[in-house]
Write a protein that binds this DNA or RNA. Structure first.
Length: 487
RNA sequence: AGCGGUAUCGUCUAGUGGUCAGGACGGGAGAUUCUCAUUCUCCAAACAGGGGUUCAAUUCCCCUUACCGCCGCCA
């Protein structure tokens, strides 16, 4: 069997979309599983919509996800260049080949003429197919049109190719995920392969590039199914080997429309900025269409690759729901190695002076505050009370807790006792237990006792482990805050 | 309109010609805890509808419906 070579071919007209990331993932998994190569190609034939910023974003996002490519624009490879705009000089040769073989012809129709034809078709409620009126232009007619200043586009002759390689007008192919697919190619219009400005169209450039880059399997979204029929015919007209195709269901928003900005983040980089871990993102997106044979959903990319079979992919669309992603993200945050987590949290702690804490204190802070985090960014609002001498008291904590007589009594008693305490977690744990027991005997619930202390020290009514907080803050700061809360 | 695709709990999905139709997220109830959260236990929740084929259909076939996609000198 020939080498497995797959590719992801994003067009840099936006940041790397989460759907593209999923397609990239499945390609990557397929390559891994089959000891193949994963190539990255940038499809920027439409200069107007392309920008370097997007290209960088695509690179960065793919790298952040760990979806490393074996060949690509930046690292090169045996079949480069891997950016379509740098390949413009190689397409004309194949256009000419198709022209020579009679599988393509020049079309001098203007956009206005074409538009009029479409209008008419729409009025008659007929599906629009190009009329082929330029198919049999004579040399003289072409010369005349050229003399008028018209620049021709080149169209692919569908019916000619279909007839040359197939018995009927039905074209079949076996899709890796959907099974056998078919289409009556009479319904496909002769489409443009080379624009009048000389640049190749998507459907043509893809075929040439896939052919030249020896792509063996094309795994992409099902929005490409109808393109596939056109592309197969080009492969055949060129005498090239047709790759195998696999079409994935789409990712939809909860309202079943295309996932777009108004549903929240769509780009991988946006998810990352919001505080999603790339591991969680990838794991989540893998579960959209794929499911593990052992039922264990939390899996690294390497583990998924072992278990991955493309034929197992679901061929239906799936809805992108945040609930599970969020759960998965918080799960990953809980599972992450503490040293790693400390680093990943830093970008979200820039408003605090981290040097106030020793490394040990910072570690402990992260350990006790990681649990309720859904997003890495949640850390920002979870830890203000670890910094500075004073603490901002939440009005509700003030009114509901600190202003009560019970709390005031608890705080005074706390100061009396704590003056003699050693502020280590071990010791604090023991002392606080005695402290709660003392009040419990007086009929005051442990949680009420602790609420008072918590509100005074953290300004809040809920938060991390109180023993650890006091130990991190130390005796001086803790007592200072408690005293300040006493009226 | 035409063409193509898809259809299992709210969501992601497993699964089979005979199953109590399984899991996960979310939801509900309870337990644990100084709070929030975690964790644990339990509960509710699905085979789109109609025809066939068959002893038997969620599973195979057809139709309907719904949804998605495609019909560009965009990619």
């Amino acid at each position: 069997m020939t080498e497995v070579r797959v590719r992801i071919a994003p067009s840099p007209s936006g940041n790397l979309h989460i759907g593209t990331a999923r397609t990239a993932l499945f390609n990557y998994l397929f390559a891994k599983k089959n000891n193949g190569k994963f190539v990255l190609r940038i499809e920027d034939t439409d200069a107007e919509r392309t920008s370097q910023e997007y290209i960088d974003n695509i690179f960065d996002s793919l790298k952040a996800l760990g979806l490393n490519w074996d060949e690509g624009p930046d690292i090169g490879g045996p079949y480069g260049p891997y950016t379509q705009s740098e390949r413009f000089d190689i397409y004309p040769k194949y256009v000419q080949e198709l022209l020579d073989k009679g599988f393509a012809y020049e079309c001098f129709c203007t956009p206005e003429e074409l538009e009029a034809e479409k209008q008419e078709a729409a009025q008659n409620k007929k599906p629009y197919v190009y009329t082929k009126k330029c198919e049999n232009l004579t040399e003289e007619e072409k010369e005349k049109l050229r003399a008028e200043g018209r620049k021709p586009a080149v169209r692919f002759n569908i019916s000619k190719a279909q007839k040359a390689f197939h018995d009927s007008s039905m074209l079949y192919f076996d899709d890796l995920v959907k099974g056998q697919l078919h289409m009556n190619t009479d319904l496909l219009g002769d489409f443009v392969i080379m624009k009048s400005n000389g640049s190749p169209t998507y459907n043509f450039a893809v075929v040439i590039d896939d052919m030249l880059m020896k792509i063996s399997h094309v795994i992409r979204g099902e929005d490409h199914i109808s393109n596939t029929f056109k592309q197969i015919l080009i492969f055949e007209a060129l005498g090239a080997e047709v790759p195998r195709f696999g079409h994935l269901g789409m990712i939809l928003a909860p309202d079943r429309s295309k996932l777009s900005k108004r549903h929240g983040a769509t780009a991988v980089s946006e998810f990352v900025e919001k505080g999603y871990l790339t591991e969680a993102l990838l794991n989540f997106v893998a579960l959209l269409g794929w499911s593990p044979s052992d039922g264990q959903e939390i899996k690294s990319v390497d583990e998924i690759a072992q278990d991955f079979r493309i034929g197992d992919l679901s061929s239906s669309n799936s809805i992108f729901e945040y609930d599970k992603l969020n759960w998965m993200n918080s799960h990953y945050i809980k599972m992450l190695d503490i040293a790693d987590l400390k680093e990943r949290l830093k970008p979200y702690l820039t408003k605090y002076n981290l040097s106030e804490l020793s490394d040990a204190q910072y570690t402990r802070m992260v350990e006790i505050t990681r649990e309720p985090l859904t997003l890495l960014s949640d850390i920002t609002d979870a830890v203000p009370y670890f910094f500075g001498k004073d603490v901002e008291i939440d009005p509700k904590a003030q009114a509901d807790v600190l202003d009560t007589d019970v709390s005031q009594d608890v705080l005074k008693e706390f100061v009396n006792r704590a003056e003699n305490w050693e502020f280590t977690e071990e010791n604090l744990h023991e002392k606080l237990e005695e402290f709660r027991a003392y009040y419990k005997e007086k009929g005051i619930k442990p949680k009420v006792t602790m609420w008072a202390v918590r509100a005074a020290v953290t300004g809040r009514t809920c938060g991390a482990d109180m023993t650890a907080i006091l130990a991190i803050l130390g005796k001086e700061t803790s007592l200072y805050r408690v005293k300040k809360a006493i009226k």
